[in-house]
Amino acid sequence: MDLIARDRTLIAWAVLISATALSWWLGTDHGFDDPRIAAVAVLFVGFFKVRLVGLYFMELRLSPPVLRALFEGWCLVVCGAVVTLYLVL
């Protein structure tokens, strides 16, 4: 067990696991009355998790700003596009 990294990434991992449980709970008829709000919440949680994987597992938080910006830009743009398309259509 001492092989498992014990740093901020482990905390990020714990957050990811909890967020998965939360998404699962939100998506299965809990939490919100309006399923559309639940759907948007689930998508926001999803993209937040993507960002955590990028910053901590891929170690983009230690990378040059350009690369980090490209990655976070992807999260922001794709999240915005998916949520907007979902709400509009």
Binding site: G27, T28, V42, K49
Partner: peptide, 11 residues
């Protein structure tokens, strides 16, 4: 992580 909510959860 995105495909799971997109296909399974987004209602």
């Amino acid at each position: 992580i995105i495909l799971f909510p997109l296909l399974y959860l987004v209602g």
